[in-house]
Simulated scan of single mutants.
Amino acid sequence: MAAVAELKKRTRRDYKYMLDYRTRWIDNDMYDHMNNSVYYYLFDSVVNTYLIQHCGLHPPTSPEIGLVVHSHCDYFGPLGFPAVADLCLRVNKLGKSSVTYEIGVFEQGSEEARAVGEFVHVFVGRENRRPGVNGMGTALREGLAKLTVDAQAKL
């Protein structure tokens, strides 16, 4: 992952997909900002929305599933109810069976990233929980390649 100072400079233009999220009263904690655990919920939501809508993933029946093997978040500013968040997504690394996502969280109307997270999936067979011999399926790879910031990504 990039250095924290570099992450803090991220803008929406650094990402290739965006999903908005209307915060809820329950997202706030006793300090009147969104609880840290909610950020991870948002990371999971934007990643899986993209996988379902653009990569052909159908979580209840797809032959392969993504297991989260790593997640991380750097927080730069508070966000809380009743804000609307822009969840911005890109792929920093596309491997044979793994993908490293970066998620920028912005408050609508503000250009400063409130948080930047990293989320790593390893795609495995639903039944055996092992990566496939040929890695992830073609539809997943092609969909994820559209988000990659690495010009060297191979299909």
Rank of each mutant, 00 (worst) to 15 (best):
R141G: 10
E112R: 15
G95F: 02
D74T: 03
C88E: 05
H54I: 07
G137W: 03
Y41D: 12
V69C: 11
N128I: 04
T148Y: 05
I52F: 08
V133K: 12
G132K: 05
F119C: 08
E107M: 10
G125S: 10
A115H: 08
E127N: 11
V120A: 03
D44Q: 03
N28A: 05
K16I: 02
N36D: 09
V4S: 15
F81K: 04
A139I: 08
Y50L: 06
F76P: 11
D14F: 01
C55T: 14
K9N: 13
Y101W: 03
Y75H: 11
L79W: 10
E107V: 11
A151H: 08
T148M: 10
R24S: 13
A5M: 10
K16Q: 15
F43T: 12
E102T: 15
V105M: 11
A153G: 11
G80Y: 01
H33E: 10
L57W: 02
K96E: 09
L144E: 09
K8E: 15
C73S: 08
S71H: 12
S98Y: 05
V69P: 06
E111Q: 10
G80K: 01
V105E: 01
A145T: 10
V68M: 01
F119A: 09
R126H: 08
R114S: 09
V68S: 02
V120W: 03
D29M: 03
S62K: 11
L94Y: 00
K8T: 00
G104R: 00
T23F: 04
Y40Q: 14
V84M: 10
R90Y: 06
I65P: 10
A139H: 01
G95W: 00
G117Y: 03
V47T: 14
E6Y: 01
A5P: 09
Y75M: 06
T23D: 00
A145R: 15
Y75S: 03
D150A: 09
V46K: 12
N36S: 12
L155C: 12
T49F: 03
Y17G: 03
L155I: 14
P60L: 02
Y41H: 15
V4Y: 07
G66K: 04
V122Q: 06
D44G: 02
S62D: 09
Y50K: 08
R22V: 13
E111H: 05
A145E: 14
V116E: 12
L147Y: 07
L94N: 02
R13K: 15
Y21P: 01
C88L: 05
L144R: 08
R126Y: 10
N28E: 04
Y101H: 05
K154G: 06
G77M: 04
L87R: 08
P131S: 02
V91A: 06
M136K: 02
E102W: 06
